[in-house]
Design a protein around this nucleic acid. Structure first.
Lengths: 221, 221
DNA sequence: CTCAAATTCAAACATGTGTTTTAATCGATC
DNA sequence: GATCGATTAAAACACATGTTTGAATTTGAG
């Protein structure tokens, strides 16, 4: 009885929370954090205006939850794969390969492209965060990304022992912003060159992306 | 007398206009369009709140003027250099070279990095525009960039006759977003890897950027 | 100096914002 | 069914926003 009542209570609670998060995710992805109003969120979620502040405390905390819902498991998977790459090369006593390191980071990310509209909206949010002018989303993004970025950076420096860290850092930034373009969506391409953008599968885009950034990453100038 | 009076009138008028544009440029670059208030702009410019609407009509028109002040001459120079490349290769009856096309587009852009704080702020604005969620800045940006983007795209397709236009389009997008990271400023690098980001000159960064994107651009997968 | 136009100014306006409040409603336990 | 805590609901709050207004001031020409 006790457990049942608890689970029922939690059920309805998370139902409202879930609807809010879903709506916020979609609107944040489409219009950005600042251009999304609480009234738009609660309207789309079909809940009362005060529900956001009741369940999340503030609009900013809501963004944080929207963000963390996907970034936490994603970064866990990234770390798992990065460390698997490191372990495998240590066993074989080979040096780290740029392609393997980048793939370990990027592949789990792009997998989310086909994991439903919620994940897709989340990716859009992430794609913009790298160059967002808005304080709040950028702070939340970088706070969550710092540890995994540092691991990626360290392994990349290890894979490119001849390249100065300052160069690795810039190249990584270029590579990540390129990935960001994939995450955002197709607005740019279809808006500018509608004739060029045939529908590409995520797999094809991942190859396109990796083929673009890996040669630049390994360049030995 | 007539000319003098006119010039004097224009002087004071453009003086106010100039101060507003300068302040707006800096604030738009730092905080983004939506997070910059009219009161912040007029406060920094030390003019009356109503001056923006009197001289420009609206906040959006102000952004347009801020943008066009630098984008018009910049795109003119880009076009000049792109067409110079095309003319030179036609005379020599050689195929277009990826490096030359990209350099013709990118080099005039990065030159602005050392052309004073105003140009620097403008670049920051441009760098963010590629992935901006906000309607207004993105629309103004793409409207102004479409023609030069199309020229760049056409020449790049010509330089890469074996590569399908859909691939060229994606690679161009990757390349431009990488350039965008240079334009935005150093927040990312210094925030995440403070130890790695030695001060680089614009010339060095341009080399870094071109060395990164050219191999990916030419990749023949 | 005088006058008319251009510009500046302080104030108000209308609306939109995130948040808070207070009462009503619901759900589960006794 | 009564009761208590959790949730929802409607309204208001306090403030920030871009814009407009109408008077004051400045400017330049006759």
């Amino acid at each position: 009885m006790f457990l049942l009542s608890i689970s029922k209570t939690i059920m309805t609670q998370t139902d409202t929370r879930q609807r809010i998060i879903d709506a916020a995710e979609q609107l944040f992805a489409e219009k950005g954090f600042n251009n999304t109003t609480m009234r738009a969120i609660t309207g789309m979620a079909d809940v009362n205006l005060a529900a956001v502040n009741y369940h999340f405390g503030s609009k900013e905390s809501l963004l944080q939850e929207v963000f963390e819902r996907h970034i936490l498991p994603l970064n866990k998977e990234r770390r798992r794969r990065l460390e698997a790459v490191r372990a495998a090369t240590m066993i074989k006593k080979e040096p780290l390969k740029v392609r393997e390191v980048l793939t370990a980071f990027i592949s789990p990310t792009l997998k989310l492209r086909d994991a439903g509209p919620s994940a897709r909206n989340f990716l859009s949010l992430v794609g913009r965060s790298l160059s967002d002018a808005d304080d709040t989303p950028r702070r939340i993004f970088f706070t969550n990304m710092r540890p995994i970025f540092e691991l990626l950076f360290d392994m990349m420096c290890e894979a490119l022992p001849e390249t100065p860290p300052g160069h690795v850092c810039w190249r990584l930034r270029f590579a990540l912003s390129s990935m960001g373009q994939v995450l955002i969506g197709t607005d740019f391409t279809s808006a500018l060159f509608p004739q060029a953008d045939a529908h590409q599968t995520t797999q094809q885009i991942e190859e396109l992306l990796l083929d673009f950034i890996i040669p630049g990453m390994e360049e030995s100038h």
